[in-house]
């Protein structure tokens, strides 16, 4: 129910969505290979039993704050923010997890990608105050600059260190 509602609310942001056939990620056969260019912006319904979440939203960095605001308006809480370093594609993916406090279960994953060499993304601390620590952690582990973050200093790593240990090319 709420998943449908959220999809409707997100429709204006993703106008091309109707023309794309639904792609189910993590299916084993990898249907993504059939399309020559991987879809960069889309709202994808995923198989909850297989992946553990219902909606997979691929957003551009420009869309990010707006997407998160819509999620916020639908009473989602922020679960976590993390990154994945796709070194072969030269990009860093930042993954935002959202869920809800009621029994209408809907787990939402928002993904956005930044260039590895110049990783910059807008902050969402203006929408979710709780994103503060999560973004600080992601920033220090992956070397991402969250533009507009109120206090972007190291959280878990030593305060004077300048290493990004979760980058795949990190050498201790």
């Amino acid at each position: 129910m709420i998943c449908e509602k959220l999809k409707q609310a997100l429709k204006p942001l993703f106008p091309a969505e109707e023309t794309i056939p639904p792609v189910i990620v993590a299916e084993g056969e990898e249907p993504a290979e059939k399309t020559p260019t991987p879809q960069r912006e889309a709202v994808i319904e995923t198989d909850y039993a297989k992946c553990g979440y219902h909606l997979d939203i691929k957003a551009t960095p420009e869309q990010l704050v707006e997407v998160v605001s819509i999620i916020d308006q639908n009473d989602f809480f922020i679960e976590s923010i993390t990154g994945v370093d796709w070194i072969e594609e030269g990009e860093i993916e930042v993954v935002y997890d959202f869920s809800r406090y009621d029994f209408d279960l809907c787990r939402v994953v928002v993904r956005t990608r930044a260039d590895r060499n110049n990783a910059e993304l807008p902050t969402i601390t203006g929408v979710y105050a709780g994103a503060n620590w999560h973004e600080r952690e992601t920033a220090e582990f992956f070397g991402i600059n969250f533009i507009g973050h109120p206090h972007l200093v190291n959280l878990l790593l030593p305060e004077d260190s300048d290493i990004h240990p979760l980058r795949k090319d990190f050498k201790p």
Partner: peptide, 22 residues
């Protein structure tokens, strides 16, 4: 595990613990 992105959350003594496995 086959390539993909998986998430699992459980209720531990301290609250919602989640594992994201890529």
């Amino acid at each position: 595990p086959p390539a993909g992105d998986y998430y699992q959350a459980t209720e531990t003594a301290r609250g919602t613990f989640g594992v994201r496995l890529v």
